[in-house]
């Protein structure tokens, strides 16, 4: 395949950025999108140009690093991560625009790479359960009804990629937040800290400069893990309950 790539280049966090156009040829449609970028980067290195900086790690769809806005869609046209996106999803001769996630809370480090540590700080404020370490308890010591276990499991698939924020016109991280709140809130182990968790995580979310949710649903259609909108309802419900309990 032959492709024209329009890619956001930015030398550093404070530098002025802009779109640069590159041509690549002989791209196999079995390549992943990141492998296609690898080819381009080799080309650039051969030409003594600086390679394009983009984030990636596992390349198997589980770490959430590969944050790229492709033709105006987070992770491109399929419901998956960029590393799992194949070039067969594009046409030969197509022009593809590649941009970094845009949100005030995700500042650009360089080119296509953004700093998503705001998510880590939200997790640090309550995305866990506090238990004493020691001998592992029996797996079935705490029974969990299947319905709750299923919902917790489904939303625990959130990989913290930030596509929801990137796609949201309000720059809100409500889907991410809702996934974490629902995940722990469905489980018996999550009950002790339920109120403080939602209060603290929401406060950190706001402090990081994410926007408020208007329930329009762009997040869920961008989410590579298909986290549904009802986690945001759950988040709102949990916060409402926390307010009632005086938090």
């Amino acid at each position: 395949m032959k492709l024209t790539l329009k890619i956001w280049r930015q030398a550093g966090p404070q530098a002025e950025g802009g779109i640069r156009t590159y041509d690549v040829d002989e791209i196999s449609e079995d390549m992943s999108f990141l492998e296609m970028l690898d080819v381009l980067n080799e080309q650039l290195i051969n030409d003594d140009e600086e390679p394009i900086v983009f984030d990636h790690d596992c390349r198997e769809g589980i770490c959430g690093s590969c944050d790229l806005m492709i033709n105006g869609e987070a992770h491109g046209p399929e419901v998956t991560t960029t590393c799992q996106l194949h070039m067969r999803s594009f046409r030969d001769g197509e022009t593809i625009t590649v941009e970094p996630w845009r949100a005030a809370a995700f500042p650009i480090i360089k080119d296509l790479m953004v700093d998503r540590s705001a998510f880590d700080r939200i997790i640090a404020r309550g995305g866990f359960v506090s238990v004493n370490t020691g001998a592992a308890p029996d797996a079935h010591a705490t029974p969990v009804p299947k319905e709750n276990a299923d919902r917790a499991f489904d939303v625990a698939t959130c990989i913290g990629c930030g596509a929801c924020v990137a796609a949201c016109p309000n720059g809100s991280a409500s889907l991410f937040l809702g996934a974490k709140i629902t995940h722990l809130g469905e489980l018996p182990q999550g009950q002790a800290e339920r109120d403080t968790r939602v209060a603290s995580m929401v406060a950190q979310h706001d402090h990081e400069g994410f926007g408020g949710c208007t329930n329009i649903g762009e997040c869920t259609s961008a989410c590579p893990k298909g986290i549904p909108l009802d986690v945001i309802s759950q988040l709102n419900k949990d916060l409402r309950t926390a307010i009632r309990h005086g938090h």
Binding site: K6, W8, G17, I19, M69, N71, G72, T97, E99, R102, A103, A104, A105, F106, P169, N170, G171, S172, G209, F210, G211
Partner: peptide, 10 residues
């Protein structure tokens, strides 16, 4: 503000 200063091109 949350959306950030730069708009998406696409």
């Amino acid at each position: 503000t949350a959306r950030g200063g730069t708009k998406y091109v696409v």
